[in-house]
Amino acid sequence: MGPVPDQQEGRVDEESGPLHETVGHLLRRVFTGITAEAMQNGAQSRDFVVLDMLADEDAPSQQDLAHRLGINRTIMVKLLDRLQQAGYVTRTRNPANRRTYILSVTDEGRAALKDMRQAVADRDARLTAPLSPPERRRLNELLSGLVAHDEQSTIPSTEHLVAQAHYRLRRLGDHRLEDYGLRTRHFSLLPALDRLGPCPQQQLAQYLYLTEPATASLIEELVQAGLVVRGQDPHDRRRYALELTDLGRARIPAVRDAMRGVEHDIEEILGPDGTRDLRTLLITLLP
C-alpha cells in the first residue's frame, strides 16, 4: 500500500478534510503514474484506445469517436492529427455527410496496435500486481460505474478505465468551477497553498505528488489569474515562495465546495461501500 499522509499532515485545513484521501486525488495520482509510464514506452493510452476502437469498426466522424471514448473534441482532433501523420489512421470524406470524415485504421496502424495491446497488457499487469484477482475485478467494476454509460467501450483494460474515470471526474469538477474561472486541475493547489504558503514550488509539488514541471505550469495559470504571487523565499533568496493573493483566498470556499461536490457525486454513483472500496483499492495501487 502506498504511503498516504496521516489525517493531520494530509489535511488541507480543518474544514476541507484529508485531501490526499479523496477519490479524485487518488485517481489522479494513479492516472498520472500510468500516463508517465505509457509515454516512456511510446504507446500512449489514448493512442491505444482510439486505434483499438477503430480496429473494430470505422468511425463515421471525429465527433462520434470523441463522444464514444469520452475524449474532448479538441484533444481528439490533435490526437487524430498525430495518428494520421504517423500513418496509423486515414480520414476519408463521408459520402453520407460531406462535412465529416470517416476514420479508419491503416495496415501500419493495425501493426502498431498489436504492439500497443501487449504494452497495455503489461502495464495493466504491473498496475494491478498488488491486488488479488477478486480485488482486480472489484476495481474494474467500480471504475466502470464511474464512467458514464454512453462513454464505456469494450476495451478490457484497467488502464483505460482509470483514464475514463479520471476524465469524467475532471469534467464534473470543471463544471462546478466554471463560474470562477478555475478548472479541476486547480482543486488541490489553492487549499494546499492556504495551508503551506508561503512555500517554495518544490515543497508544494512534493505535498501534492505532482512533478515540478506540472506544478510550474499550474502555478503560472494561477499567477496569470491573480490568485497566486511569487515572492522571495526568506530561507533561500535564490528561489521563489508561493503565496495566495486575497482573491486566491476568496476562491477557497468555491474550491472546497466543488471538491466536496465531486466526492458527493462519486458516492451517489457508487454508494458509501463502493466509494470506500475504491478509495482503498486506489491507495493499494500507489507506489
Results as ranks from 00 to 15, higher is better:
Asp13Gln: 04
Gly17Ile: 02
Leu19Ala: 08
Leu19Ile: 05
Leu19Val: 04
Thr22Arg: 15
Gly24Asn: 09
His25Ser: 09
Leu27Gly: 06
Leu27Ser: 08
Arg28Val: 00
Arg28Cys: 03
Arg29Glu: 06
Arg29Lys: 07
Arg29Ser: 06
Thr32Ser: 12
Thr35Val: 05
Ala36Thr: 08
Ala36Ile: 02
Glu37Arg: 14
Met39His: 11
Met39Ile: 12
Met39Asp: 08
Asn41Gly: 05
Gly42Trp: 12
Ala43Met: 00
Ala43Lys: 02
Ala43Pro: 10
Ser45Phe: 00
Arg46Asp: 03
Arg46Thr: 10
Asp47Trp: 04
Asp47Met: 03
Asp47Leu: 00
Phe48Glu: 07
Phe48Ala: 08
Leu51His: 05
Leu51Asn: 02
Asp52Thr: 04
Glu57Lys: 15
Ala59Phe: 02
Ser61Tyr: 07
Gln63Ile: 02
Gln63Trp: 08
Arg68Tyr: 06
Gly70Asp: 01
Asn72Met: 02
Arg73Ser: 09
Arg73Lys: 11
Ile75Asn: 04
Val77Leu: 13
Val77Arg: 15
Leu79Val: 04
Leu80Pro: 09
Leu80Gln: 08
Asp81Tyr: 07
Arg82Phe: 05
Leu83Gln: 13
Gln84Arg: 15
Val89Lys: 09
Thr90Ile: 13
Thr90Trp: 08
Thr90Phe: 06
Ala96Pro: 01
Ala96Ile: 01
Arg98His: 00
Arg99Tyr: 03
Arg99Ala: 04
Ile102Phe: 01
Ile102Leu: 10
Leu103Val: 00
Ser104Ile: 00
Val105Ser: 07
Glu108Ser: 14
Glu108Lys: 14
Ala111Cys: 02
Ala111Ile: 05
Lys114Ile: 08
Met116Ile: 02
Gln118Asn: 14
Gln118Gly: 14
Gln118Leu: 12
Val120His: 09
Asp122Tyr: 01
Arg123Tyr: 07
Asp124Glu: 12
Leu127Gln: 07
Thr128Lys: 03
Ala129Glu: 13
Ala129Leu: 13
Ala129Val: 01
Ser132Ala: 15
Pro133Gln: 11
Pro133Arg: 11
Pro133Ile: 08
Arg136Val: 09
Arg136Phe: 01
Arg137Ala: 15
Arg138His: 02
Arg138Ser: 09
Asn140Ile: 06
Glu141Asn: 05
Leu143Arg: 10
Leu143Gly: 03
Ser144Leu: 10
Gly145Cys: 04
Leu146Met: 05
Val147Asn: 05
